[in-house]
Computed example of a mutant assay.
Amino acid sequence: MRIVDVCAFYTPHGGGVRTYVEQKLRIGPQLGHEIVILAPGDEDGVVERGPNARIVTLKSPRFPLDRKYGYFASAEQLHGALDALAPDFVEATSPWRSAGLVADWAGAAPRSLVMHADPLSAFAYRWFGQVFSRRTIDWQFSVYWEHLRRHSRRFDHVVCANSDLSRRLAEGGVPRTVTLPMGVEPGRFSPLNRDPALRARLLAACDLPESASLLLGCGRLSPEKRWPMVIDAVNAAGQQSPIGLVMFGEGRERRTILKHIAGNPHVRLFEPERDRETFARILASPDGLIHGCEAETYCMAAAEARASGTPVIVPDGGGAADHAGDGAGMTYAACDPAAAARAIATVLRSPRRQPQEARTITQHFAELFALYEDTRARVRMAA
């Protein structure tokens, strides 16, 4: 099949969507499909990524609130590009404007809406959750819910990477929800990557001896990740026994987070580690991974830590929670630093368990594309 991903969230500057896109461009052709990423860009262009894999950009305005991203401003432009590409299957991978544009396209190809974002959890519930119930917030954001319900009826599937999001969408009247978890890079993450010398160096950077515990946090430095809460939880747990926290990430909240660290020598913030082999050793070497975001659609950091044999300490909502099952870690009440501190203490007292075989991103794409092939065959038989 020729699969066209209308990807409004793609940017060459990084992020989880770019990682997913790069994996799709590599794995899709291996599974016998042609992958085209249709994305907003500064200019019209085509970037070839090998046989049956390319990125097509349409000249588009920059998104005012985050200028790393563009947005599809013209329905005529996007529909013309889809007509020219003649896809066998179309994906809309943003729940915002591009979902409506793809739904409105007059082509005959079946299509899916892939939820790479959970805006209500990332924004509305986070902003207003301490004042109003979720039911009240959902009512206040009824325009967004109606947008999802209206457009989802015109898609063959609404694909979610975690069961919590699928459940909430289905309960909110969004039909055809399907849960298809993502997965980790095959052969990359393993407990065999554990490096005691690296662990000792990271603890030394936190002004602590090897006998202390080491926690890892990694991800974008943005408000929904709740890094100040994570720091507070680690500091509270560290009152009982010494704990170092090393964080790897970049983003617009860097100054806020450094201010919150307030010179604490046991908490260190580093730039992201770009070398994948080194990052795999970092993930396998601490005593736990701590995460604060309850709005993850999958939480790749927790998935990779679990595959590395590192226990995860994660909120009980969103995609992160799925990675703590089967003894792989512990969940805590989301947004509660005291609950997170208790979970940290429990995990650090517990022996490590042998990890189960990790789900890979190749398995994810094989299942996703099989779903698309079945849908296409069904549509053709009904025509």
Rank of each mutant, 00 (worst) to 15 (best):
G317Y: 10
L165T: 03
S152K: 11
V4Y: 01
A108C: 00
E373R: 13
R255L: 07
A377D: 13
I344G: 02
L371N: 11
P61W: 14
P95N: 14
R62K: 12
V46W: 13
I361T: 06
R376V: 15
R352W: 11
G238S: 15
Q77L: 04
E146Q: 14
R176G: 03
I257E: 06
P315Y: 12
A345M: 06
D232M: 00
S213C: 11
R252D: 14
L82Y: 11
T179R: 05
V174W: 05
D88Y: 02
D5P: 00
G172R: 13
A53M: 13
Y298C: 08
G172C: 03
V114G: 04
S98N: 07
A377E: 10
R226P: 02
A338I: 07
G50W: 14
R62W: 11
R201N: 11
P51M: 12
A307L: 03
G238K: 04
S163N: 02
T11W: 07
P351L: 13
A321G: 02
F72S: 09
G70H: 14
R226C: 04
F189A: 05
R226A: 13
V312N: 09
E185Q: 06
A106G: 03
M1E: 08
V379T: 06
V314T: 06
R54S: 10
A205Y: 00
T57Q: 08
A117H: 15
E224N: 10
G217H: 13
V131P: 01
A284Q: 04
G318D: 08
G107Q: 06
G32S: 12
L208P: 00
E34Y: 04
L215F: 08
Q354F: 05
A81G: 04
A81W: 01
G107N: 05
A237P: 02
E210W: 11
A106N: 12
L245P: 00
E294D: 15
K59F: 00
P265N: 10
T177S: 12
Y298N: 09
L289R: 00
L31M: 08
R276F: 05
E271H: 12
A343G: 04
L192M: 04
S98R: 07
A204Y: 00
L289P: 00
A320S: 09
T346G: 10
R167C: 10
T11L: 03
P119E: 12
N264P: 01
V312H: 02
G309R: 05
H323N: 02
V56C: 13
P186C: 01
R353H: 14
H266W: 02
G32N: 10
